[in-house]
Design a binder for these strands. Structure first.
Lengths: 234, 234
DNA sequence: TCACGATGTGTGGTCTGACCACACTACACG
DNA sequence: CGTGTAGTGTGGTCAGACCACACATCGTGA
């Protein structure tokens, strides 16, 4: 019997986590209703709801009103969903220095492109390429461009297949977009910079396609740290 | 004016996030009381509580009952606090394959030791060294040893000073401990393996002290992937 | 005068019961 | 046989009521 001295909502969370680990709950399953869970665990419905809320924000479940198979709280376990909220709030609370975010991004992305370039079977780069097509198709506002830019890097991570790295990149995405946009005013020429960024994106994909891991790593590192340096000269 | 069609607790969360970004709330500050916040935002106290709960799990605030300066909900923004819960639950829900966790760990830790070894001023390794001393002091159970092991790696990340990486490592810690413990039965000899791991730990610190980044990276990579391979031979 | 204990006050933590909007189900009616 | 309407169960929300706790205050006793 686990200690009962923890807060009620924590015991609910622990119970659900145990069910998850024990295989009694799997992705796609529906949680019991809030009222039923409350009775079963001997706590109030509000406590159940606080636990449910946590699981939802963490991206583990999806809730929907109404009835039927799609209603209720359903286990989804979509990676990154919660990480994004976490990183966003953490950065908002000044928990993470931008320099650390950039550095971490550098490390993760270097690993991503290395893995892509070294993959034995040619990785599927359709996703990233489509994004580049969109970015090059027409003139975009700075915000639009940078949003697609961050999305491109996220797509690379997805293509690498590493779900943990993808989740982390998804979490960093908001923070990345934030500092990227904040740096725009410091640029000498936005059109010149965006043009360069687009070229570099194509270059990164080219090195991956060429299976040149070393070049890919260099390309992505200069791409990221180049922009960072350019926006922090002032 | 933001849309009011979102769920009540989301609007509370958004309001607090906005205060964070706007500098109206900073680490160390106390949130208004739940009742006051409910009145101020025009929602019920339970909705406020759900938002508070999310912030607490994400590691952004700490709540305490009673009165006085240490009571109430206080912004703490301690990195890793929430990431840990997130990763733990995500792994529990089979959201992340172990192989991806190991791979990510490899990338992050390689970066950590590289940075430590290349630091211009000798980094402070007192924390990691103390942990090694404890591990070597006496015979430990497997669980104790592996817990300290994970803590050692986390201490290295902390020493590197990169808060984002530290947070991510903290998040991975539970998952790491989990697969490490799960692999013990597959080992030929636990005493032999633990002895080797301890030697490798000392070796990693030595390469850092020697400022040999390349050796440090190799050491940490063989340390991690070695154990992983050893426990996945069967 | 000073130490100490009872009391007051405000905090988060929890439970209960009551609505609401919604979406699907089932049944009755044309 | 189709169709629409009432029913049922879901999450979402609110209001109010306690509780335990920790600090602040003030009185009382030494």
């Amino acid at each position: 019997m686990p200690a009962e001295d923890r807060r009620a909502w924590e015991s609910v969370l622990a119970h659900i986590e145990a069910d998850l680990l024990g295989g009694r709950l799997r992705p796609g399953d529906r949680l019991p209703g809030e009222r039923a869970l409350a009775v079963e665990l001997g706590v109030g419905r509000s406590s159940v709801r606080e636990a449910i809320r946590v699981l939802e924000v963490l991206g583990l479940i999806r809730t929907a009103t109404g009835s039927g198979p799609s209603a209720g709280a359903i286990i989804v376990a979509l990676p990154g969903g919660g990480m994004s909220a976490l990183m966003r709030l953490q950065v908002a609370a000044q928990g993470f220095p931008v320099a650390d975010v950039v550095k971490t991004r550098l490390v993760l992305e270097a690993s991503v492109v290395t893995e892509l370039a070294e993959a034995t079977d040619r990785p599927d780069l359709a996703g990233p390429e489509e994004l580049l097509d969109v970015m090059e198709a027409r003139e975009l506002t700075e915000a639009e461009f940078l949003a697609l830019d961050a999305q491109f890097h996220l797509a690379l991570a997805e293509a690498s297949g590493n779900q943990v790295v993808t989740a982390m990149m998804a979490g960093l995405r908001t923070a990345i977009e934030g500092y990227a946009r904040a740096g725009v005013p410091a640029l000498v020429s936005w059109p010149a910079t965006s043009a360069r960024l687009m070229l570099e994106h194509r270059g990164i994909l080219a090195t991956i396609t060429a299976a040149d891991a070393e070049a890919a790593r260099r390309a992505v590192q200069s791409h990221i740290s180049g922009y960072y340096a350019e926006t922090h000269l002032a």
